[in-house]
């Protein structure tokens, strides 16, 4: 037993050395990651959001007369500080075409129905989508994350992860697809009429 514990110390030492090698390699790598990811503080995120919303958006009263607090970044669940927006704000952002909607549900649910123009970024497969997202969506883009509805946490998780990756303008529409659909708002990809079986 004593021998086994001593061996575990040896293994721990090897892991510690590996960490050191990893950190050194990372500092020279072209694909380096931040050693201690910082979650943007509320001020930074708000500033980013204001930057977006205060830029001229002709004809957009819903957004330019904002109670700014409704977009305010609140301390939220796990890691991030994200704003949470209700249905009407989501609709306003949709109409203003100022935001990228990210659908955190799986590809099948996405195909069956989504907010028009939304980008599918399933949270449980996020590593697969990392390159596409970072290549196509600039970091200061206003992003609205949603999933099925108020009870799912994929949109929160996706938003947290986007903030950690470096996106500065991320908000969550917790009402999700369920509220959007109930409100009768525009949708795309709804299943084509069932094959006429009757």
């Amino acid at each position: 037993m004593k021998m086994f514990i001593r061996q575990l110390f040896g293994g721990t030492a090897l892991i510690a050395v590996s960490l050191l090698v990893g950190v050194i390699y990372n500092s020279f790598s072209s694909n380096k990651i931040q050693l201690f990811p910082q979650i943007q503080n509320a001020g930074a995120m708000n500033a980013g959001l204001q930057g977006t919303t205060s830029s001229p958006m002709p004809g957009d009263s819903a957004l330019s007369s904002p109670e700014p607090d409704s977009f305010a970044v609140r301390p939220a669940d796990r890691a991030g500080l994200q704003g949470i927006i209700p249905l009407d704000k989501a609709r306003a952002l949709f109409d203003a075409k100022k935001a990228v909607f990210m659908d955190a549900r799986d590809a099948k649910a996405f195909a069956e129905g989504r907010i028009p123009g939304a980008m599918n970024v399933p949270y449980d497969k996020l590593p697969d989508y990392y390159e596409t997202v970072t290549a196509t969506v600039p970091q200061d883009t206003l992003i609205v994350c949603y999933c099925w509805g108020p009870t799912c946490d994929f949109s929160d998780n996706l938003a947290s992860e986007l903030v950690i990756i470096g996106y500065t303008n991320v908000v969550i529409f917790r009402g999700g697809w369920e509220e959007w659909q109930k409100a009768g708002y525009p949708a795309e990809g709804l299943p084509a009429q069932q094959p006429q079986q009757q």
Binding site: L8, G10, G11, T12, L14, I15
Partner: peptide, 12 residues
């Protein structure tokens, strides 16, 4: 360092 490597793998 075979035993240490095996031990590191065990820990992981």
């Amino acid at each position: 360092f075979t035993k240490q490597a095996a031990s590191a793998i065990f820990i992981m």
